[in-house]
Simulated assay, not measured.
Amino acid sequence: MISVLIADDEALVRAGLRMILRAAGDIEVAAEAGDGAQAVAAVARHRPHVVLMDVRMPRMDGVAALARINRAPDPPPVLMLTTFGLDEHVHAALRERAAGYLLKDTAPRELISAVRAVAGGGAVLAPTVTRRVIDAFAAGGPPGDPAAGRRLAALTARELQVVRAVARGLANADIARELRMTQTAVKAHVSRSLAKLGLTNRVQVALLVRDAGPLPPSPEP
């Protein structure tokens, strides 16, 4: 049974989420919280498998609560919910290692699938959020963070090529055509690169590449 903590400042929203999750059969609601501070305390008290948390809450917002939760030993994955497709909270939540980011109008079956996915160690992002975050970062000027560059330097030449393509928003099939690889090979390179970089999803890759700024041309693999 997957235990979930629901954190949202609206009681009606919490009630709706509770009904959806309990109908899944393999998910139980361990506790609820009305703001970020309550969510942090409830995580320590109940140790849920997954936290389902609204981004905008009083006293302490969801991003601040996420950061506090992730500083504790063995933190549960946090799946963020918002009514907004893209704002500064999306970027902040991804930098704080949110396990997922969904819009509140997500269909019930997709919400249940997302909870199961992050409970199993996966990451989930609403497709519209993924595309718009990548586009927004691609349009911005490169900050050139040396620490980000050093992390990318740990990749092989081929992994770096694949990661740069991922950061441009290309799907595995597009990367395979561009780099003349099989999709199976691309998937393997993406998985290895995520593991080396300590990341969980493709949007985090885009953020890291953007932070690194201009890099020397990738050597031939």
Rank of each mutant, 00 (worst) to 15 (best):
A185Q: 12
A185C: 09
L94S: 08
R150Y: 01
A147W: 00
D174T: 05
A206W: 04
K187Y: 06
G169H: 00
E88F: 10
G100A: 11
N172I: 07
A126D: 15
A136Y: 10
G100K: 02
F84P: 03
G100C: 09
V166H: 03
G100R: 03
A93R: 01
E96P: 04
V186E: 05
S113V: 00
V190H: 06
A114P: 03
G121R: 03
L179F: 13
A185M: 10
T156C: 13
A107K: 12
L155I: 07
A173L: 08
V118T: 05
P127N: 10
R177P: 12
R109N: 11
G169W: 01
R151C: 01
G169F: 04
A212E: 01
D145C: 06
L179Y: 08
L208S: 06
V90L: 15
A173H: 11
D174K: 00
M181D: 12
R109L: 12
G169P: 05
R158T: 09
K104I: 07
F84G: 04
F84A: 13
L102M: 10
L170H: 09
A165N: 07
S191N: 09
A139E: 11
R210L: 11
G85R: 02
V205C: 12
A99Q: 05
D87Y: 04
L197T: 01
T156M: 08
S113F: 05
A185R: 10
P108N: 09
T182R: 03
L103Q: 05
A148D: 05
D145S: 07
V209M: 09
Y101V: 02
R202I: 04
L160V: 03
L111V: 09
A188S: 14
A92F: 07
A126N: 15
A136R: 03
A206Y: 03
R168M: 11
V203I: 04
L103C: 14
V129P: 11
V205I: 15
P142T: 06
L86S: 14
A114D: 03
D145E: 11
L152V: 02
G120C: 06
P146W: 00
E110G: 06
I175M: 10
R109V: 14
L208M: 06
L170T: 02
V166R: 01
Q183V: 14
L160W: 03
A176D: 09
V209H: 07
R192W: 01
F84E: 13
A119D: 06
A185D: 06
R158Q: 10
G140H: 04
V186G: 13
L94E: 02
A117C: 14
L86Q: 15
I112D: 11
I134S: 07
K104G: 15
D145H: 02
A167W: 04
I134K: 01
R95G: 13
L102K: 05
L199N: 06
A93P: 13
V133H: 02
G140K: 08
